[in-house]
Amino acid sequence: MPKPETIRGWGFVAPALIWTLAFFVVPFGIMAAMSFATLDGRELVWGFSLENYTRLFGQSYLLRAIVVSLEITLTVTIVSIVLAYPLAWIIVYRVPARWQRLALLLAILPFWTSYVVRSYAWLLVLSREGVINQTLMGLGVISEPLTLASTRFATVTGFVHFFVMLLTLTIYANLVQLPANYRRAAVDLGASSWQAFRHVVLPLTMPGIATGAFLTFVLCIGDYITPQILGGNNELTGPQIIMVQLGRGANFPLAAAMSIVLMALVTLAYLAASRWLRLDRL
């Protein structure tokens, strides 16, 4: 007979447990099982086959989608950190305290726009007749329009625009909690400004960077819309291949296998960032 405290304990955790089981464990289990199923013509055959994984890693154009996703995600994450950190720094240390909220609001203003609309807006900005090409041609810098839209550059630009805002928030939240005295103490003890940043501020703001970077990685590697609109289908990412398998071929087993691989990559990213993932510091 379980003790009343035990029953009460289970009662408290049951809602969270049921929620997690219903909306994560069970769907994940179905997806994992699906990834081992096969198609016989257009009929789904449940079973245990590694055919989808063999195909995924054996066919260069499928494997390349994973590689492209990784390359884009890593580029976006790094570029976003490099741009977001100075922005957060400026808001915390250079903007007067009473204007900081407004500055932060302005920094995240693009969040209020629809993701799809923002991507199409970038497509127009980067097109041959777009603002950038027209400006450069007007200034006589170039004579022919540059190919900016429908490229990986366009995809990365669209992503970075979004994720800089996200990273600015997480880094700002971390920086603003950091007492200015830490930096001053380091300088008093003879450290240069760079050394104080490198050895004091940066390590203490790693939780903010790591959290933002991890969220960027997760959202970027699973995104379908941005590469679809801005990439011009000149190279396909993992989610685009998954959509093709679902929408055109109804090949749920192969799509599930690709999803499992993407989830494995996210897990690896989590393990890599877990040392610094300190949400309580934000």
Binding site: Q59, Y61, L62, N233, N234, E235, L236
Partner: peptide, 8 residues
């Protein structure tokens, strides 16, 4: 498959 190969 051929179409995807073309896209990539």
């Amino acid at each position: 498959d051929v179409w995807l190969e073309m896209l990539q």
